[in-house]
Amino acid sequence: MKKYRIFWTCILPEHLIAQYRLSFAACNFSYNLMSGCAFDKVYSSMPLYVGGEMSKEAFSDKRFELIYDRWRKAGKFKQKLATFKEQFTMFQQIPKDASVWFYNLNTLNALLFVMLKLLKPSVQLNVIVLDFTPVNRGFGLNQIYLKLINWAHGRICLANSELFKKENSLVLPGVVPYSSKTRPEIKSIKKTVLLSGVLSEEISMLSMVLDVFSKLSEYELHITGIKGNELMLQQYANNHSNIHWHGQLPFNVYMELLHHITFQLSTRDINFPENQCNFPSKIIEALFHNRIIISTIHYPQIEGMKYFTVKPTKEEFHNGIRAIADLSDEELLRYANQGNVVERLFGVEVWNQAMAKIEE
């Protein structure tokens, strides 16, 4: 008998994501997964920094139920405590024998996890581990969250890390949505490159990328995202005609830009703990949309797919981009147009089957 399946996540209607400073990557992942219609109920909670009056549209979206306590409107102190009341509200609503899937485990849902584990033991608890930063020394909350993740009935992880319990665990690096829309194929190679998403140094190596492409005038570099050094970005854009800083774009405009470029960059430094237990959503997204990937990390979880790996030091990165530029269009096109393969490997039906297997 199929369990009543619940999804806990952190989403808002698409047009409100930027207004309330939610993660586009997290919302896109959640909506992609939800497009498979695998959940009987979806709950959404807000990060601690979200407070005040919430748009009425956030409560009218039929795809999910937003749990938003009135303490969110009662000043900074109560705003931070509101998450605990919200978790208690959800605890009361979750029926016995349900299967709950958590998008990550953190301050927003750890109390709910523990209450369900101890007080409703018939509820099956599962975690989708997307962005986990290990604590290499000292003590941190993530050590507690790691214990809870491994206390869960099952896990789906984006990366194969020794930190996570192997029993009843699967590795899937991402999910692509069910969609009847066609995705444009690359017919000819243009020297157009995109760096997008979180633009902090540990996630994008932004300063290295800007410096290298300022010396590669034959390439057009487009950049869009958040948390980058905007002053530096604007200075490079002003001084180099091949570098274009777009700021943060609405999703539909971003997709138009993605379809305009040939190469998607994923420039992460494996030495940063933020990059050890996750997988860049931009890689799956760009592959799904038939773009060519240039990555600074080799990822075994997409073994068999064609993508370029370049070294993450400035000189080696520069030489790697130069080497790619020297390839013929025929050679480069072998790395493009893999969207159908991505859909077969990481589509919602694959995820539905994975969740069902873990629940068994």
Rank of each mutant, 00 (worst) to 15 (best):
G339I: 03
F164K: 15
G174T: 11
G51L: 06
Y43M: 10
L265M: 02
K166I: 03
T224D: 09
F346A: 13
P173Y: 13
I297H: 13
I67V: 15
D131T: 06
S30R: 02
Q92L: 08
I283L: 08
S179T: 14
W151G: 14
P300I: 09
S241L: 01
K311M: 06
L206F: 02
M208C: 08
D326Y: 02
S55E: 09
N290Q: 07
T296Y: 04
G75Q: 07
E343H: 09
G225K: 03
K80F: 04
T262R: 07
S214M: 03
K191N: 14
G320D: 04
P173C: 15
L66M: 13
R291H: 02
R268M: 15
K76M: 12
E285K: 03
M205Q: 10
V129H: 07
P312R: 11
F139A: 15
E256T: 11
R21H: 04
L148A: 13
S44P: 00
S200C: 08
P184W: 10
S241F: 04
K78R: 10
A237I: 05
S188L: 05
M54W: 00
N242Q: 12
V193I: 13
N150T: 07
A58G: 08
N271A: 13
L163F: 13
L141Y: 10
V129C: 12
L258E: 08
N106F: 02
R344S: 10
F24E: 08
K80E: 05
V171P: 04
E218W: 06
L146D: 12
K357A: 14
K76C: 05
H222Y: 11
G347Y: 04
Q79L: 09
L221E: 06
Q235R: 14
K227P: 00
N32Y: 03
H222C: 12
I144M: 14
W101S: 09
M34W: 06
L221H: 03
K306V: 02
L172A: 12
R21D: 14
Y31F: 15
K78W: 11
V253S: 15
V100Y: 00
W245T: 07
F288K: 04
R183E: 13
S188G: 01
Y219R: 11
Q235F: 01
K191L: 15
E202C: 09
K166W: 04
P173R: 15
R183S: 14
I297D: 02
F39T: 05
E218M: 05
S30W: 01
T313H: 12
P273C: 15
